[in-house]
Design a protein around this nucleic acid. Sequence first.
DNA 1: CCAAAAGTGTTGGCTCTACACCCATGA
DNA 2: TCATGGGTGTAGAGCCAACACTTTTGG
Lengths: 227, 227
Amino acid sequence: MPAGPTESADRFERPRVAVDTVLFAFQERRLKTYLVQLSRGPANGKWAFPGGLVRRGEMLDDAVRRELKISTGLTDAYLEQLFTFGDPSRDPDAHVVSVAYMALIPDPGRVSGPSPKYAAGGWFELSALPPLAYDHAVMAKYALKRLKSKLEYSNIAFALLPPIFTFAEFEELYSQILARPIDRRNFRRRILAMGLLRPLKETRRGAHRPAALYSFARQTLQMIEML
Amino acid sequence: MPAGPTESADRFERPRVAVDTVLFAFQERRLKTYLVQLSRGPANGKWAFPGGLVRRGEMLDDAVRRELKISTGLTDAYLEQLFTFGDPSRDPDAHVVSVAYMALIPDPGRVSGPSPKYAAGGWFELSALPPLAYDHAVMAKYALKRLKSKLEYSNIAFALLPPIFTFAEFEELYSQILARPIDRRNFRRRILAMGLLRPLKETRRGAHRPAALYSFARQTLQMIEML
DNA sequence: CCAAAAGTGTTGGCTCTACACCCATGA
DNA sequence: TCATGGGTGTAGAGCCAACACTTTTGG
């Protein structure tokens, strides 16, 4: 005697608490985000950011990490709380208050397929998202806005880049995510002057002139006026 | 046969959702915040920001407005969501996830006493807060930080000032909240150049030279580089 | 030797900061 | 006329944006 959606909703006296995670990675010179395809519920077939209900006694961050592990296999990511969405009609099935997080990782290749809980999972360019469930399109906009603004006044890029990278990769990340061209000379001068990056002695050899390698001076979030 | 705190906590399968509101007003040349004194629960006697549980089917903003009305009689305020606090041990009595809001009003004199739900209520200077319940001291810091930074890149001051004011009052608000001296000439030049304020034709007569009056050009939040 | 990406300086304009005196009024 | 808060201008320094060619390598 399974409960239908409506009856199910009535079983809860209070709003439920969930977390949803907008996971970003920079891959093939593009910012991408990870989505899962729902296989049940009123939004069946639509895509969504991975998320789920918070358990009793669980920290919000722990709930995010748990869901991230289930959906992607990831055990480490930079996490930042974004906003809490509480419109009772955002999920037609029940009153779910969702705390949205942004997660950043340097290497999207490490992500394993989603759990059987979902029909599918994959990376999407932000300009070509499939139809999103609930209010997740709003979350996507909100997350991108936050990421853009943090790029301009913090060293948050460290969470999207591998430990060692070229200056061109660093600059490409900025110009792609901010969606505007960046003056190479001015940008390099400013970044190096503020000591954000640590120049390494090695270079990366490729098809052309070798590129000097850098790593971040600090791997923790620092607020700095950048642009 | 009232339930004790422990038994009460066990009745809920899931975390509960609450809102708490850090209400700011600028009065007597000082930034003040409104606190209520708890008259029951494990934090009995301590002070806290007004708040309460979100009801089923209720928007978060509506819950904030409802609690604000109960605690202060206010029906209008600028509201902004700050952060969601979800540590399960933040309330020793139950797992309560609290969505913190900042509220701004121009006239603290309008606030009426708190509901019988609370032992007392009143305005406090931020430098002299009484012992706060739960994690409300963290909320206070968070709210102040947000207010400071928004003063620097938006016209949010409109929500803390009456419809008509002198430039000296406007400047005093900035220098007090940012806790640093402001160069009167440079500040005035910049603010007027960016068209943030609308000069009125009247002046305010007092004990000394009359002061020109201003109002905000826009009464809605505008993001602008200010300082 | 050619293609492709890496790397490098200067200048003019603009913005920001520092700073001190006169003005208008009521008492 | 005096006390008090209101109101005003300039100059030097520092910062920012615009801008194009040379270098290094692999193929």
